[in-house]
Every structure is written in C-alpha cells, then in structure tokens.
Design a protein around this nucleic acid. Structure first.
Lengths: 189, 189
DNA sequence: CGACCTGTTGATTCTGCTCAATCAACGTGG
DNA sequence: CCACGTTGATTGAGCAGAATCAACAGGTCG
C-alpha cells in the first residue's frame, strides 16, 4: 500500500459524497467515520462506523453508492490501491471482513428489537475500545438511531431503561459505564 | 477458477452449516440458495438469496458464521480458490458486489416499512429474472419473511394489499405478474 | 380418506413512531 | 453579567403498523 498524507476532516465533514467517482480506499488514523445512504424521501441509514485502524471505501461500481462523513473529527489516509502491483489478497480479506460485519448487522436490523439493537451496539463499541467497563460514544443520538434503524427518542428511552435496570450507568451523554456485561451479552444471544 | 463437478442439493438441503470450516467458494449453476444465520433463541435472518451465475461462501474467519441451504433444488459447483495462482482481483470484485448488495439490504431493513420491503424484493427478483412482467418466487413465504425481517403473515397481507391496489396479480402462490412497475419503484425511492 | 404443510385471513396486543413539551449546555451580543 | 437563540437530549401522550394468537382453506402425500 502506498501511504499518503493524513487529511483531517472536522466534525460532519464529507469525505466522499454519493455519486462521487470511487476508486481509492481510505484508512482511519484516528476519530470515527460513518458510511451512509440517504433515500429519496430523506430517510438515512448508516451502514457502518469505522474507527482507527479500519479501512473503508469499497465500491463495486465506478461511483460511490454511499457517502462517508467524519463523525467527530477524523484523520484519514488515502490508500492508492488501484495500481495493479498491490497485494490484492489482503484487500480481499478486508472486503470480506466488511461483508461479515455488515451481514451481522443485518441480523440486528432484521430480527432484533430496540433494546437488543442498543445492546449490540454497546458491546460492539466496547469490544473495539479494548473491552474495559467504559464505553465512549463518539456519535450523537441521531447517528445511533440511523445506525440501529430506530428513532433517536427510542435510543434515549432504551438507555434510560438500561440505566433503571442497573445494566449501565450514564456518566455523561457520550460516556457509559457497563455494570452488567453479561446482561448485555444475553440480549444479543 | 478450477471448475469442479456440479452437486445437486434438493429442496432444504444444507450446503454448509454454521461452524463448518470455510475456504472454498461456491458457484450457483441453477436453482436458488439462501444464506442464513440463526440466533440462540431461534430467530432466523436470511442475509441473501443467490441464483444462477452468482458466487457465495465468502467468510472472514476459518469457520462459517452463516449457513447455506438449497431453497428449491439447486446445482452448485465448488470453486477451488485457495490455491494462490488464481486471479484474486476478480474475487475481490465479487466480494465487493456482495458487500454492496448487503449494504443496500441494510437500508431496506433499517428504514423501510413492510410494503416497501416487499416492493424492493419484487423489483430485485424481477431485475435478476430479466425484467419481464412475471416474477417467480422460488422461495416460500417463510423465507421471504426471514429475508425482509417481517412475519410470513405480514408477507401474505402485503401481497393481498398490492393485489387490491392493482399493482400486481397473483397468478399462483409463487408466480406474480407486475401490473404497475412504477408504483413498486416509487415505493423503493 | 385423513394427516400434514403452506398460505390466507381475522382479532387482539404491543412495540416503537409521531408529535410535542421540557431541559441542559453552549455561544453570542447587548 | 444576563437575555436570547440554538442544538442535542430527555420525557410524555397518543397512535399506527406489525407481531402474536388463532382459525380455516387448499393442496399433497401417505
């Protein structure tokens, strides 16, 4: 992989837009990136979040079907992949990992209720952040909602519900302490 | 790709199970294959259907996280891909196509109601079957439901609803005539 | 013919959405 | 310093869409 300079995208900045010509891949140095699609009537689905160390930007056609934005101020490095001499085997692995992750998320959206979806997200973030008791939410409620396929009001209510059950503590609006990891895991069974 | 013999899987036969060791890819010669995941409490999500000409079996780990079954009697050819001399570039393209398809389905499950989901499936199948007025449903209501993240009763009701609106005609339980293609397309906007 | 499976339809329940009010945090300008 | 507007988060009331529970019809196969 040809490394390039790191570009900083402030909160909400567009990394690429729907319809932009695709090609390069992107590597997250720090921060969080969301991959989204907007339907004609304005409904948004966030297909994935990407944090430091992850690669995004795979597209089957020459144009981006989805768009990418910085969630919280993110540093992104462009990977010049299209020159033929690269090890496409590792690219394949990355693409398949994305596929698996997306398929798992399909299960969440298709067959889980609101609480279970929230539990899945908390455990996912927890795992990616090292697995301590604290979970940091880099995105706001609106993003969580559009990722989980529910409304931001429901996100609020579910968090309150988890708090009342002593499964989590809300240290701050974007800082959560997991009190009962097993309870969350059971919700995702 | 090293071609191998075609194996016939009768209706409902397992092609590979959850937990099986992964590796080879599979090419559909004829019929339809479903890729599924089952949760601990028995809820099933079908992540994709594959018809003639398509490739499935991509897995990030050494084990299958999902399982594959024949929907209606399918002929499947194993591709020996793991030997290094193959053109991994085309594999990458196939994997990315699967990814894009799955991401599109995420939008359907996350942000669409039951009628819109059904419309999306009908148009998807219609496109894959050449785009005529007739759509053949190789799978039964239960499969449709588990693919769209709704119940099979709802599938029935939605089809009746589409019929009453003169958007489709139900020639047989698995044979549908599209009367108003635009109306379906508008539901997927 | 009866058993069984798939599909359809109806009645009722319930989860999560919509609409709306309130609150806290923050920045700006007088 | 405080009034004001803005933005994000929380909470409440009422409603709608889809799930659940249940009955029944049609087809197939023993």
């Amino acid at each position: 992989m040809q490394p390039a300079a790191v570009t900083f995208y402030p909160e909400g900045a567009v990394i690429y837009a729907q319809g932009d010509s695709a090609g390069p891949l992107y590597f997250v140095e720090f921060g969080t990136v969301r991959i989204c699609r907007m339907s004609a009537d304005g409904r948004r689905q966030i297909t994935s979040f990407h944090v430091a160390g992850e690669v995004f930007g795979f597209e089957a056609t020459g144009e981006h079907d989805f768009y990418a934005e910085s969630v919280d101020g993110a540093g992104v490095r462009v990977l010049r992949s299209t020159s033929g001499t690269q090890p496409t085997g590792s690219l394949l692995l990355l693409a398949v990992r994305s596929l698996t992750r997306t398929q798992n998320h399909l299960m969440v959206l298709g067959r889980r209720n609101a609480s279970e979806r929230m539990a899945a997200l908390l455990l996912d973030l927890n795992g990616r952040q090292g697995g301590g008791a604290l979970v940091h939410l880099p995105m706001q409620r609106n993003d969580i909602a559009d990722y989980l396929g529910i409304t931001f009001e429901t996100v609020s209510r579910i968090l309150r519900c988890l708090k009342d059950q002593h499964i989590v503590r809300l240290l701050a609006v974007n800082e959560i302490e997991i009190l009962d990891h097993d309870a969350l895991a059971e919700m995702c069974a």
